[in-house]
């Protein structure tokens, strides 16, 4: 995975709560056996007027020309609820977003983001309101996301510090391979497994 670097980009506003993974990536696109090419299907049912996805829906927020190329998504509570499909973050990353700002994220989606170079940023309700207000007042405004210093800053003078687990931060900043990290402890897993096997022999029967 690539190292996560500080970036300044257009922040797109999608003021909806409980955006679920079915909306992020609809089921008809889950049949592929590859990890790539999901971005074109992101938010399909909202984004397009037709099933084929050829007619852009002008009423959908992210279709506003001013949000083109946005890497930051600012959105409502409980983003990513629903299914465990990693196709959701694959679609988000492939579309071009590398940071999502909300008051809360669904658990599995939150985990999945970190595997795909996406930084989910949790802010307070008031902080979210102020970020949304700045975008509404100045559509196309660019925010700066700085993972190293755990901050989001805006031209309007907002400066928010956010919390994140130290290990998630480090792995994202350094672009580390999670599986590789765990495999470094194969000896510990071997020892554990042997003990586990003695304690619970029926698990291996």
């Amino acid at each position: 995975m690539e190292k996560y670097v500080k970036h300044t980009s257009v922040a797109a506003l999608m003021n909806r709560s409980n955006v679920d993974t079915d909306q992020i990536i609809a089921k008809q696109f889950l049949k592929k056996v590859e990890r790539t090419g999901f971005g074109v299907h992101l938010f399909h049912d909202w984004r397009y007027l037709d099933d084929a996805g050829t007619q852009s829906n002008p009423d959908f927020e992210l279709n506003k020309p001013v949000f083109a190329g946005a890497k930051i998504l600012v959105t409502g509570d409980n983003f990513g609820c629903g299914s465990s499909r990693e196709h959701a973050p694959w679609a988000i990353a492939d579309y071009g977003f590398s940071a999502i700002i909300s008051t809360s994220f669904a658990d599995i989606f939150y985990n999945n983001c970190f595997k795909n170079g996406i930084l989910p940023i949790v802010v307070s309700t008031d902080e979210l309101k102020s970020l949304m207000a700045e975008i509404e007042a100045n559509e196309g405004v660019a925010f700066t996301v700085d993972l190293e210093n755990q901050s989001v800053s805006t031209p309007g003078g907002i400066n928010i510090e956010f919390e994140i687990d130290g290990f998630r931060k480090r792995n994202l900043l350094e672009g580390l391979d999670d599986i590789g990290l765990t495999l470094q402890h194969t000896d510990k897993i071997d020892v554990y497994e042997k003990k586990h096997q003695q304690q619970f022999p029926w698990l291996w029967a």
Binding site: R35, S83, S84, R85, E86, P89, I108, N111, N112, K115, N116, D165, F167, D178, I179, L181, T182, L183, T186, I189, E193
Partner: peptide
């Protein structure tokens, strides 16, 4: 018992473990 993403499916297949807080 809980749901995981595909990267974690791979992780469990390879290591029989998951990093979990």
């Amino acid at each position: 018992a809980f749901g995981i993403g595909t990267s974690e499916v791979e992780h469990v297949m390879a290591t029989q473990c998951l990093p979990q807080s």
